[in-house]
Write a protein that binds this DNA or RNA. Structure first.
Ligand SMILES: [Mn+2]
Ligand SMILES: [Mn+2]
Ligand SMILES: [Zn+2]
Ligand SMILES: [Zn+2]
Lengths: 155, 155
DNA sequence: ATTGTCGCGCAACTGAGTTGCAAAATCTAT
DNA sequence: ATAGATTTTGCAACTCAGTTGCGCGACAAT
């Protein structure tokens, strides 16, 4: 994994630095998207916030991560799994925001649907964001309720 | 029109004030969406920016306008044409951003497509934003080029 | 190891959006 | 129409995310 991180950086002709390694490995380890704040919290003790901003920006430019727009106007970032390159993203999938656990997921397996535009319009990019309850949270809802120490909990 | 504005405000039990009238009539007169900045520019000479913020917020809460998320993380607002009510928006249409003229449009006639989510996921809201070239701009592209005073212009 | 390039941290700045409060406008009841 | 209660406005002050410039230290090429 440490090797993979170095490799990705080198492949994108980025010098291998502590902050880049740390932030990139965060993305590799987590399943889902990260907001700037998350990263600052998980890696920020060690690095300046400016560095986090600049690193994210660099990663987006290189096509290592992509941004996900949200209704509440806060940007999130996730690894590009398709092979995006410098200046050319083609993450052709939809995004899901769980309103229970708050996690943002790339649904790689769900392709963006065809949309028939009115005559005269031409499209070059389509962004689909769905809000709802994720698989994990739905599973929990159906799991048995446990009573311990006066508390009723779902596992 | 002045009557319509007053009427909409009253129907939503809002007191009829100059700023609300002005901003609402802006939305009624324009075809498309407005960013906060646009409104400040077109109506802001007369009203404080705080008033603009608060007015937009009130209109959104009442279901008079709705927000449109954009990739560049700037919110835009457009009239709700479906009969949205306090706390209950149901603008079931997609949004289009023209990369040439910059305008944001509600494509009321295009319903949001069905999306088949992976097993376990449930959705409650779906947001589709398409970037491209709008009808008008495409038309201009095909219109004849006029040469005047050494300039080459499309009509 | 030397040298030139690049990334980092710091500090200072910018600009969007928010808040509290007193004055002004609107509404309601007489 | 008037007066009093209520709502909205404008101002000033503030917060907080994101940006910029710059000197120092880390990195990569030789
Ligand atoms: Mn994604
Ligand atoms: Mn709309
Ligand atoms: Zn969830
Ligand atoms: Zn256009």
């Amino acid at each position: 994994m440490a090797i993979e991180v170095d490799d990705i950086l080198r492949r994108n002709s980025l010098s291998v630095t502590d902050s880049r390694k740390k932030i990139l490995s965060l993305f590799l380890s987590i399943h889902g998207a990260l907001a700037h704040g998350d990263i600052e919290r998980k890696a920020g003790e060690k690095f300046d916030r400016v560095t986090v901003y600049r690193t994210l920006q660099t990663f987006v430019e290189k096509g290592i991560i992509h941004t996900i727009p949200t209704t509440d106007n806060s940007v999130r970032y996730a690894l590009c799994k398709d092979n995006c390159t410098e200046g050319h993203h083609h993450d052709n999938h939809i995004h899901f925001i769980c309103m229970q656990c708050g996690s943002t997921l790339c649904l790689e397996e769900v392709l963006v649907p065809e949309v028939r535009l009115p005559k005269g319009f031409t499209s070059s990019e389509i962004e689909v964001v769905i809000k709802g309850i994720c698989k994990e949270c739905n599973n929990k809802k159906n799991s048995p309720i446990v009573e311990t120490a006066g508390l009723r909990l779902r596992l």
